[in-house]
């Protein structure tokens, strides 16, 4: 959370060096926490690391001028989804504390695949975007523009999405119901 606030302050100064510095901090925090999350031997710790990653990503959104998305990220991910995941941990009676058995025997293949994908993606991004720069004057996009877009151009997808959420709600109840 502090990262997000700091990033906000950074924007007001609009000095790209400072912003870059904040980005570096956020990126490092995000990647390290993500790595800790997928390697941690404690389920609750993993969930907390995910929390850090998601906050850092929200900071990145602020740097990119997407304040509404950042706010939604905080509300939905940090607020709702994390609670849901922690409930999942609780209801499945995961061991609180270290559990040596969280990884499977295939982790090395998984690591190989992940590293391979990263290499391919990095290479192709480098080839594709080279040194494309973001616009220098990064003004935050007004929320009004976002809402105009959602309730104008993308009204039908939006309605479809609401239907999807309803279906997911009913589906979750039906699947998890005890009978």
């Amino acid at each position: 959370m502090t990262a997000a606030i700091l990033a906000q302050e950074a924007l007001s100064r609009t000095e790209s060096g400072v912003v870059n510095g904040f980005f570096a901090v956020l990126a490092i925090v995000a990647i390290v926490s993500a790595l800790k999350m997928v390697t941690s031997s404690n389920v609750v710790h993993a969930a907390l690391y995910l929390l850090v990653v998601l906050s850092a990503v929200a900071g990145v959104y602020v740097i990119l001028g997407a304040e509404f998305v950042a706010a939604t990220q905080v509300l939905v991910y940090l607020g709702a989804i994390m609670v849901l995941l922690l409930f999942g941990v609780m209801l499945t009676r995961a061991k609180i504390g270290t559990d040596t058995d969280l990884d499977n025997e295939q982790r090395w293949i998984g690591a190989l695949v992940g590293a391979g994908m990263l290499a391919v993606m990095t290479y192709s991004l480098w080839e594709g975007f080279g040194d494309d720069k973001l616009p220098d004057t990064m003004v935050p996009q007004p929320t009004q523009a976002v809402s105009d877009s959602i309730f104008g151009t993308y009204l039908v997808p939006f309605e479809a999405l609401s239907l999807l959420l309803l279906a997911a709600l009913i589906g979750a109840v039906v699947v998890a119901r005890r009978d």
């Binding site: 993500a34 999350m37 997928v38 499977n104 295939q106 293949i109 690591a111 992940g114 590293a115 990095t122």
Partner: peptide
């Protein structure tokens, strides 16, 4: 991309 690949590793290894 880095976060994506870490996520993929998590899906595969956990």
């Amino acid at each position: 991309a880095a976060l994506f690949c870490i996520g993929v590793y998590g899906v595969l290894a956990r």
